[in-house]
Amino acid sequence: MNVIIDNADLFWAGMKTTLTLTAASAALALVLGVLLAACRVSPVPSLRIPAAGFVNLMQNLPLTVLFFLIVFGAPKVDIRGTSYWTRAVLALGLYTAAFVCEVVRSGINTVPAGQAEAARAIGLGFTQNLRLVILPQALRSVVGPMASTLIALTKNTSVAVGFSVLELTSVVSRLNEGGKAVPALFGVALCYLVLILAMSWAFELLERRVAFAR
């Protein structure tokens, strides 16, 4: 316990990095994921097929390999001036975007076909249909699965420990050098536990708030 209190600033610095990693890559993943989902349901094959391909690729590629490619590979193609943090955000964002896309798409599929048909019957086009009728309903039913995706993202930020980002998990290896691995392990686990359970509690609250009877 003393180890945790003595190194509170270390834990807090790690926690902050984990939180900023999560927030930045979540923003990237949400924007990109919704765009991908729109591509995947669009009548334009030249957008639908690449989007589907990208999603499949990300779902079958280990996050560690993507990290390896982006974090170590970026300097090789003369992309300089980006920090490890930025590249980690890019890897996490691209990876999670595919899962966000699938969540949004399955949300679109839960909206009864009659809704889309009625929208078309009153003369709405594809984008109006999606924007005014389908997405407002789809996004609500998507809160639960989206929450698990974002929680998975939060846990996934720990992969960055292997790629020179000093986030929460890295506290363990830094304290390990001083022979304090065990309290550090439990401290880090406790931090994640509090963070993740708080997140899932908050999302549950949100889910209940936006719930609607159909």
Binding site: S158, T169, L185, V188, L193, I196, L197
Partner: peptide, 10 residues
């Protein structure tokens, strides 16, 4: 609720 990396660290 724990990342797999942390679980491997134990």
């Amino acid at each position: 609720a724990l990342p797999v990396v942390v679980l491997m660290y134990f």
